[in-house]
Design a protein around this nucleic acid. Sequence first.
DNA 1: CCTCCACAGGAAGCGCAGGAGT
DNA 2: ACTCCTGCGCTTCCTGTGGAGG
Length: 413
Amino acid sequence: MVISFRVFFLELQNIFQGELERQTVFLDRNIIMPHYTPRELPFREPQIKEISGIVSSSLNGKRSDNIFIYGKIGTGKTVTTRYVLSQLEEFAQKNSSRVATAYINCRNHNSKYKVLLKALKRFSPEGQFIGFSAAFIYEKLLEFAEQNAVQIVLALDEIDKVKDLDELMYALTRCNDELESGGLSVIGISNHVFFKDRLGGRTKSSLCENEIVFKPYNAAELRAILAKRVEKAFKPGIVDEAAINLAAAMAAHESGDARTAVMLLLRAGEAADREGLQRVSDAEVQKAKSRVEEEIIFNMISTLPEQEQLVLYSIACMTIEKKGVRRITGQQESGVFFSGDVFEQYREIAKRFKESVVSARWYREYINELETYGLIVTTSSGKGIRGNTRLIKLGFDAQKIKETLEKELLKAV
DNA sequence: CCTCCACAGGAAGCGCAGGAGT
DNA sequence: ACTCCTGCGCTTCCTGTGGAGG
């Protein structure tokens, strides 16, 4: 018994030692992780300057204008905002200006109450405020600004997730009227370009005092970004030029999403490690592509409401079965479907899964939702067919979407 | 040109769950 | 414990749009 434990112990030591000595292509893997915040933000200098210019008035004790930032996923909105906030706070500290900043992700804090609570906790971490009313939290926040005569800059990421945004914005703008000293301004960040149009009039005018758009990176920009990261993340000379080019091109082709590009190289590097290779070539990136695509699809699909999953599943099935391929201006165009046909298919499939079937009107809302996530692409019918309808196409590989959805839908049953 | 079709998307309203107020 | 209120997901109804066909 004693001997066998000794053997076991040695074995463990070997595992750990092996891990330490394992050959790796990485120098610092963290730098190529999607959540890493780089020190430099190439191609975002204009936005950094613009945001800094607006929030800098808070250094002089004046309330800065609100800002609304929008752009697609992976265009650097969050990173840029956080960067400016940290610089602002650092500068304020050095020059003893009274400025406080908070970054809040509204995906996790999706109501007026939760946002106010989170902000308050950031500014007075020792306080215990759980269970108090929204009004009390609001008063406490005012008190903090008033007593310290501090200018608060609140960054609300994924602001579209806030359920009662109109009320939150009303409260936040009103608090400036109530304050004798100090002030509060908001930086709202959203992925949805059309989100602005859905806001109430007053919320819109107060939030959109300044609007800044983040355009997707093009292939050349992604290439430069990747090259910078690769320099620090990988050992020198490991990553081929071709690998960087391919990853940049793939990501630019999909959506100009920097996160995808970075993920491609990370997974390519991991693949090289697994196979004991000492270089990362375009072949590894190619292999990583399907894996990364799966991750992206899974992340998007698993958070979707069940009915939206069913709609998407219907489109995937139709694409695979090559069902209902329709003639458009004489030519065959596969994988493209009429909105009406998809609805029919969805009704059948929903019945098969013993789910309730939503009305055609609400189905159209689902289609719009799916499109904003980029899971499907729709075009107006235009010339040649059925008047005013929409043509629907999948945004990703049908087989992968179908498989992922089957797992998700079965899990729910 | 008019009418019909097939749909887009706005507006109103309904039933429900869950929170606030009493 | 009770009512009242409110937001959410959804349906119903409606108006608008643009090609097809007479």
